[in-house]
């Protein structure tokens, strides 16, 4: 604008550390996960199995937060969708190499877990329907990240292919993501 002073900018990097208090459901999930078991909650009304569980069924709007709703989920499943990521080098990005992430429908779960890292696999061979299993971190390295709201990555390093026939697309077409 004519007559106004020029605008100047300065770079200011800030850091922000915070602690999240996780819900009892997330704490429980993390504890079981660090002990080597993936758990989910089965809805008493529609029967859908949620993992990681949120403590309620968002479709039926009923709580699933007591022990009787808890079910164990297999640490293997089917890749339902995936992408090969060429990591953008934003500030703080430590990834340098191309890698694959997938949505995985675990055996016993009704919905997929998203953005799961694949490993021990030729990137050209990643496909929808591929069967994979968890490669767990050694027990002492599984951080009990309950206080941060644990994700599967706090105990599972990556997922690798297993020698099983692919799941046909029609079996998971309704559960892609």
């Amino acid at each position: 604008m004519a007559g106004s002073e020029p605008v100047s900018f300065m770079q200011q990097m800030v850091s922000l550390e915070y602690k999240l208090r996780a819900s009892p459901v997330a704490v429980d999930f993390a504890r079981r996960l660090c002990a080597g078991t993936i758990t989910g909650h089965a809805c008493p009304e529609c029967g859908l199995v949620y993992t990681p569980p949120s403590g309620f069924c968002s479709i039926c709007v009923v709580p699933t937060n007591t022990r009787e709703h808890e079910v164990e989920i297999a640490d293997r499943g089917t890749v339902t969708a995936f992408t090969i990521v060429n990591p953008i080098q934003y500030r703080g990005q430590k990834e340098r190499e191309v890698y694959a992430v997938a949505s995985i429908l675990l055996d016993g779960a009704s919905g997929t877990i998203g953005q799961q890292r694949l490993g021990d696999v030729d990137l050209d061979r990643v496909r929808m329907g591929m069967r994979v299993e968890a490669v767990w971190l050694p027990e002492e390295k599984r951080k009990d990240s309950a206080a941060m709201g644990a994700g599967l990555a706090s105990a599972i390093h990556h997922w690798r292919p297993v020698d099983e026939p692919d799941t046909p697309l029609e079996e998971f077409a309704e559960h892609i993501i």
Partner: peptide, 17 residues
């Protein structure tokens, strides 16, 4: 955090599907 895939990485599996 490191290892984020951004919007492209999030939507790519949907597009793949």
């Amino acid at each position: 955090r490191s290892g984020g895939v951004g919007a492209g990485g999030y939507f790519a599996p949907h597009i793949k599907a």
